[in-house]
Every structure is written in structure tokens, then in C-alpha cells.
Design a protein around this nucleic acid. Structure first.
Lengths: 160, 160
DNA sequence: AGGCTATAGTTGTTTGTACAAACAAATACC
DNA sequence: GGTATTTGTTTGTACAAACAACTATAGCCT
């Protein structure tokens, strides 16, 4: 085997580990999130973005791109959140095609509870797995990959 | 903010990066895989396990755990692969409840083509993002997380 | 042997997701 | 100012995923 092939194979393995780790963590976090707060990971993700936004409101398209959801996926997701009373839609005065997703009072209350619980759970699950220094290293390596992925997906777009 | 809270928040960020990187890579790889070989990432994943196994055969339950699929998910996945002629089921002589999924000749041919193409694509996408040393570091850190995740999910189970 | 529990795998049903088409409003162009 | 194109969002449809209930076989304990 040539050196190029060996390197390529290692990359395959690394990518495999990335997928395995992520899906595994998802399977651990999701049930707890659901038990703690009755939220799916995706709903949580949508609500976090809204909770972290100054006016607790974002345009649908903004929210879709921030959450890695397709436009239709976000529509359906916000439909569900609206049904459960945690989000409402408001029309956009500047652009009558547009809609805002707005975190409701109930949504805010739910998230005030859910966010610290979720953080604590992540913390608990990952405690002692990596040293603090390793954690920083991992974070910085992943950031490089994430940024690269974004440039591949949206050539010309800014990072974050 | 206390030191504990800061560390927990960093972990949240790291987990977020893990999810973002993975879903981003998935969105890059999947269409190419589909274009090159007509396979979903999941089918590919199932077929790779079979291709890498000495007799090109694995028990359904083995395959399910290796691919992070639920038993029912694997049943359906193998159903589809069987329909497209790449896998067949064989009953297990030692345990009549059990079934093997076996890579067919056609499956083998498809994978002989698909694997190098996929590896080349991964290689191309990730080229130059990390240094070789960083790649090894990332791989080893992810392996720790993956192994930990497995112990949390199946307490008492072996690693790999 | 007889019966209890556990394991392997499949299937019913419900829910989620994506793609593409539809629709509405805004923008561009002449 | 009127038509064509683009953009923001939703909806129709098809497909895939998870959970739980089910079937069949195995293993155990007496």
C-alpha cells in the first residue's frame, strides 16, 4: 500500500469515528433531554437559537440555516413547537413573504429549565473522558473541520 | 461564572462542534456517494461491514450493533439491500432464530467500485484541513469518546 | 420432560425528513 | 407601469426511523 492510500484509509477511519461518536452521543443525550424537558434534540436546538437571540425571534430562513434544517424541515418543526405553545409565528412588516419564529413565554420558561439540565447532563456524560487539555485540543480540531465544511458547503460564505 | 460552569459550557460547545461537523460532512458525502454508487450512507455502511468480514457474512444482530442501527432499522435496511440484489439472507444452522446477512457477488462488485471512490472523496474533501499529526490526534481523541460512549450505552460490553 | 425467561429477528404503526411543486410577495428590467 | 424572475415559506408525497408488540427458538431450572 502506498503512503497516500494509508493516509486516505486513516481519514476514512477518523470520519468513521466522528460518525460513531456523534450518533452514540445523540442516543445518550436525546432520551435524557426528552425525559427532562419533553423536547427532541431538534426542538431543543431550534429553541436554543431563539433563546439566545436578543428579541427571542428569528426569521424562518435564518433559523433554518443556523440549525442545519432544510426550509421545509424547519416549517414542520416550528409547526410542532407552535402546537405545543412554545413558539409563535409573527409576520414580518418589512417583507410580507417573511415570517418570524418567536419564542413564547412558555417556551422561555421551558428553556430556562431545559438548558441547564442539558448542560449538566453533557457534563456528566463526558466527565473524566478527556483531560482539560485534550478537550481544548479536540474543540480546536473540530472547529477547523466545521469551518472547512462550511466553506465547502457554501463557497464564499463567512465563517462564524 | 464558576470554573465548573465554564468547563461545562466548553463541553457543550465541543459537543455542538461534533454535531455540526458530522452533519456537515454527512451532507457533503452522501450526495457524492449516491452519485458514484447509488448507495445511501447507511447502505454503504452496512455493505462495508460485510465486505470487511472474512466470509462476507454477519449475523443480523452483529451487523446492527456495528452500524448503530436498531434491530428494526437493520431489518428494513437489509430488506432494501436484498431487493436490490446486493445482500441475501441465510439462516443460521446453529441457531434457528438467527439469520446471516451475506454479501452477494453483485454486492461485492458494487463495493469494489464504491469503496475506493468514497475513500478518495473523503480524502479530497479533508485534504489540507489538518496536518498529519493533528489527524492522528483527532483520531485518538475521538476513539476515547467513542469507547466511552459504548461503555455508557452497553455497560459491561467490550470495546473493539 | 415441562414450563419460565431470555434472545433473534420481524412487523405494525406512528412520526419525522427530504425533495419538489405550489404559492405569494418582492425585485429587476424594459 | 407591467411583465419576468427570484426569494421566502408552505404543502403534497414518498420514504426512512424508532418504539413497541409479536413470533419463534434457545437455554435454564427443577
Amino acid at each position: 500500500m502506498t503512503a497516500e492510500q494509508a493516509r486516505a484509509d486513516e481519514r476514512l477511519t477518523t470520519v468513521g469515528l466522528l460518525f460513531e461518536s456523534t450518533t452514540g452521543l445523540g442516543r445518550i443525550f436525546e432520551p435524557q433531554l426528552s425525559a427532562d424537558s419533553g423536547l427532541s434534540r431538534q426542538s431543543f436546538d431550534v429553541l436554543v437559537r431563539l433563546a439566545r437571540t436578543p428579541e427571542h425571534r428569528l426569521r424562518m430562513s435564518e433559523l433554518a440555516s443556523q440549525t442545519s434544517l432544510t426550509p421545509s424541515g424547519l416549517t414542520r418543526s416550528v409547526d410542532r413547537l407552535e402546537e405545543s405553545g412554545m413558539v409563535s409565528r409573527e409576520s414580518c412588516p418589512d417583507d410580507r413573504r417573511g415570517a418570524f419564529a418567536v419564542l413564547s413565554e412558555r417556551g422561555r420558561v421551558v428553556m430556562d429549565d431545559a438548558i441547564p439540565l442539558h448542560i449538566a447532563h453533557i457534563d456528566e456524560v463526558l466527565d473524566g473522558v478527556l483531560t482539560p487539555s485534550e478537550e481544548r485540543t479536540l474543540s480546536s480540531l473540530l472547529r477547523k473541520i466545521r469551518d472547512h465544511v462550511h466553506t465547502v458547503e457554501q463557497p464564499g460564505g463567512p465563517g462564524d
